[in-house]
Design a protein around this nucleic acid. Sequence first.
RNA 1: GUGGCUGUAGCUCAGUUGGUUAGAGCACUGGAUUGUGGUUCCAGGGGUCGGGGGUUCGAAUCCCCUCAGCCACCCCA
Length: 452
Amino acid sequence: MSESNKPVKPQLIQPRTLKGFRDHLPETMIPREQLIQTAREVYRSFGFGPIDTPTLEYLEILTGKGSEETDRQLYKFQDHGGRDVGMRFDLTVPLARFVAQHINELGTPFKRYHIAPVWRGENTQRGRYREFMQCDFDTIGTLSVAADIETGLVINALLASIGFERFTIHINNRQVLNGLLDKLGLSDQATPVLRSLDKLAKIGEEKVIAEMVQAAGTSEEQARSVLAMAALEGSNEEILQQLRLIVAGNELGEAGVDRLEQILTGMLAGGVPAERIKLDVSIARGLDYYTGAIFETFLDDLPDIGSVCSGGRYDNLAELYTKRQLPGIGASLGLDRLLAAMEELGMISNVKTTAEVLVTYFDKNALGKYLEIAANLRAAGLNVEVYPDAKKLGQQLKYADARGFAYAIIAGEDELARDTLQIKNLTTGESTEHPIASAASALSDMINKANA
RNA sequence: GUGGCUGUAGCUCAGUUGGUUAGAGCACUGGAUUGUGGUUCCAGGGGUCGGGGGUUCGAAUCCCCUCAGCCACCCCA
């Protein structure tokens, strides 16, 4: 064969995904969707309603605050009509626009949840992607401490419903910090001071002080005063007591401590176990738009993974878009972190099927019968898959086992002649024979018993 | 965005100072006297060594570029 007769290789396109963007296989999507479903149920149980907003917004909506960092991370381009547009990088800015636009239809208080992907063109790292889900809930239009308390209750309910028992909700109030900064004459440097303070756990006391002196222009003494407050330890009651002394004489600070106390007692009254709540003046979140309560939630068994649910109160959500003042409070569940934690803690089963029952395709002349059996089981509320090929039974069971099915239905010539089928429990290996007519209720009973 | 480390089958890796048809385990597919899985045994598919270019008689192995992953910084609205 000469060179020219060689078949031309088709030019394949290399299958790949963009940096920071991920595919999700069923085995990871199943727990992911379960988590989202749980969050949805918890949000709804408190009366939050679902909303959605467009992926793309006018660029000016997103760049409103216009920091350099925003510019660097924002995905932006011109659409076919020459409009400058950007992809949302969080759900809060779209919420602000949404609320400003619709508040008259919505009325206040307005409680919504929003579970949707956002995009940031930042450098990737473990757990940091360019496309990821946010899972937010917020209450807009009330300054009441009841909304602050409820935020804590929702956080508690979220984690408990997901299956965590050992976690701690750290609570702070920006007013306390601001009160102290006010007292120290550092009000104008609040943002850089708090940004440094937020790094306390990460880089240690001395470095934070150094950074405050250098970046925020405080004196070393001022920096130490801020640190002294952040380092307060003891029971929640003891911390409250010491805070009162520290901010004494400063109106803002005193009000902040009062508020903190109300949140604490409110959460206890709302059923949050005391050991899950920790007043922690050191958490400041890097975000300078928080003005009141701040929440961060850590898993006791995996504190290093960071906060899995964070949020806080902000005074004026929509000030860029409306003259109406709209205070709000809310928080966001860290979906990816939580899934990583659950994986690490062995809380995720390796079930790769969404159906619990596999109807085996045994007698190749009886497909119609199998489809009928499956339909009856589905009518009884079960998720059922019919194996598509009349392969050897052993292979079908192997498939069922590998995917994590709980039950297999086996009906060959013998059973069908008797109008019966076998229900095989794949966990125990036990097999029982039932009349086809009553199989659905028998199987439902078995599943209910197993779940009880 | 800056700096550093890494990149060999789906996964975890081996591959001697550059030398012939690139290997293992797991996973996958099929089989082991044709109605029952998770054990065992056998066989098989799958890689142009992330991609492109260069040095060389010869490169997975050296050099450059690029893409991707990880770590730190930055940042986390």
